[in-house]
Simulated assay, not measured.
Amino acid sequence: MGGLGPRDTAPGRHESPEERADRRWAELLQEVRVIQTGVQILFGFLLTVVFTPRFATLQQTDKTIYVVTVLLGAATTGALVGTVTFHRLVAGHRLKPETVLWASRLSLVGIVLLLATVTSALLLILRIAMDNSAVPWVVAGLVGWFMLCWFALPAWILHRYSSRD
């Protein structure tokens, strides 16, 4: 048995830029599939609300929140579907690493828009369900929780473990 060379002892994967781009694209696509299902269900539900008898009885403020929520849901859907169409339009042009980078950024925009959509939907639903001054505090607490789970914990892990050498 021969000795281990630097390639064999270096931490991490040993893949070419093309292999890395292929792997990262497959990971991104799986992530988008998971989140897009939830977004489609939420957006579909939002589209039906305006056709219910109760909608006509809502205060103007609640109707405005509803419209904002639907627009945010549409923007979220656009960003997440955009990751796939981005790839489809540039596929075959030997731009996989660039495609992965930009599609990844677009999916992150979709996640931020999802946070805004969920926040707006929670505000609307809880205003109707609770009808009290605690609603903004409950929504703010949930937004804080989402921010912790979706952004702060991953950022902390990235900072803590990627700076180790």
Score class of each variant (00 low, 15 high):
103 A>T: 07
1 M>Y: 10
26 A>G: 14
119 T>V: 06
58 L>G: 00
12 G>D: 02
36 Q>D: 06
111 I>W: 13
19 E>H: 01
74 A>L: 14
64 T>N: 11
3 G>L: 10
108 L>S: 12
8 D>Q: 13
106 L>S: 05
93 H>K: 13
94 R>Y: 09
154 P>V: 12
66 Y>Q: 01
165 D>K: 02
8 D>Y: 07
51 F>Q: 07
84 V>F: 15
156 W>S: 06
59 Q>I: 07
29 L>M: 15
27 E>F: 12
27 E>D: 12
74 A>F: 14
57 T>E: 04
106 L>M: 05
32 V>Y: 04
4 L>C: 04
41 I>N: 02
79 A>W: 06
65 I>C: 07
108 L>M: 11
165 D>C: 02
130 M>D: 06
24 R>Q: 13
164 R>M: 01
5 G>D: 05
165 D>S: 07
58 L>Q: 08
124 L>G: 10
57 T>N: 01
140 A>W: 00
140 A>I: 08
101 L>R: 12
102 W>Q: 08
5 G>Q: 07
154 P>I: 06
21 A>K: 01
93 H>Y: 13
104 S>G: 09
131 D>S: 08
40 Q>S: 14
31 E>N: 14
53 P>L: 11
87 H>P: 12
135 V>L: 00
51 F>A: 15
66 Y>I: 02
43 F>R: 02
135 V>Q: 00
102 W>T: 05
10 A>E: 09
28 L>G: 03
104 S>L: 01
20 R>E: 08
141 G>F: 09
60 Q>F: 05
120 S>A: 08
134 A>E: 12
136 P>Q: 03
153 L>D: 06
155 A>Q: 12
124 L>Q: 09
6 P>W: 07
21 A>G: 01
67 V>W: 11
148 L>C: 05
81 V>I: 15
83 T>V: 11
105 R>W: 14
36 Q>L: 13
112 V>K: 08
73 G>D: 04
124 L>T: 04
62 D>M: 06
18 E>Y: 11
42 L>M: 11
162 S>T: 10
108 L>P: 06
143 V>H: 00
64 T>I: 13
19 E>Q: 10
98 E>P: 12
132 N>M: 01
160 R>F: 09
102 W>N: 07
143 V>K: 00
119 T>F: 00
98 E>Y: 14
114 L>S: 01
144 G>L: 08
9 T>D: 01
37 T>F: 10
18 E>N: 04
30 Q>G: 09
